[in-house]
Amino acid sequence: MFGSIENPYLEKSEWGWTIDPKRFRITANHLYDRYQKPLFVVENGLGAVDEVTANGEINDDYRIDYLRKHIAQMGEAIEDGVEIIGYTSWGPIDIVSASTGEMKKRYGYNLC
């Protein structure tokens, strides 16, 4: 999407987006060091094709793991001295995907 070089050591989402919680921390440190302004993290999350079980449940441990790892790295950035004043993930409800224009790619929290 942005012309970056592929890193074969990083996990990727179904859509080819790299999953790199450590880079999340490094980027927060870089931005804070450069601008010395508090950060507010917006739109962090994982879009995926969730499978609904026969009883209507969605087991999205992969999304929980993604968020857990990124939030942990945000905590590490705070310990590094980065002033983070807020955090929002992608929509807690499913929305039309901006990249695909469809509902197949889901973002929401599956509270079954």
Score class of each variant (00 low, 15 high):
E11R: 11
G3C: 09
V42R: 06
K105I: 06
N55I: 11
T88S: 11
R25Q: 13
Y9S: 12
I85E: 04
S99I: 11
R25H: 09
A98H: 11
K12E: 10
S97M: 09
G16T: 02
G45D: 00
F2I: 13
F2C: 11
G47Y: 04
G101A: 12
I19Q: 03
I78A: 04
T27P: 00
Y87D: 00
G101R: 11
S97W: 06
G86V: 03
I85D: 03
D60V: 07
Y32R: 02
R25I: 05
E83T: 09
S89R: 05
A48T: 15
R68A: 12
P92D: 09
I84F: 04
A28T: 04
V42I: 14
I19G: 02
K105T: 06
S89C: 13
G81F: 06
R63Q: 08
K12L: 03
I19W: 05
P38M: 00
C112I: 09
I95P: 05
G108P: 11
S13H: 01
L46W: 01
D61Q: 14
E43S: 06
T88I: 08
N7K: 10
T27M: 12
T27L: 14
L31H: 01
N110A: 14
S97C: 10
M1R: 12
S89Q: 07
H30V: 11
T18A: 13
Q36L: 10
W15N: 07
I71N: 02
G56M: 10
W15I: 04
E43T: 00
A54E: 15
I95L: 15
S99F: 10
K69F: 03
K37M: 13
I85V: 15
Y32F: 15
A72V: 09
N59E: 10
K22E: 14
Y107M: 10
W15A: 10
K37D: 00
I85Q: 06
T100F: 13
N59S: 09
L39K: 02
Y66G: 01
H70V: 03
D61N: 15
I5L: 13
D61G: 15
V42N: 05
D50H: 07
E43G: 05
T100G: 10
A98M: 10
S13L: 04
E6G: 09
Y109T: 13
R68C: 03
H30G: 07
P21W: 04
Q36E: 12
E83L: 06
D94C: 10
K69P: 00
I19Y: 04
E79A: 13
W90V: 04
G75N: 14
Y109I: 15
Y87E: 02
V96P: 01
I78M: 11
R23S: 14
K37H: 04
M1A: 13
E79G: 07
A98E: 01
P38R: 01
R25A: 04
D65I: 02
Y87P: 01
C112Y: 14
Y87W: 05
S4Q: 12
E102L: 09
E83I: 09
N29A: 02
D80Y: 06
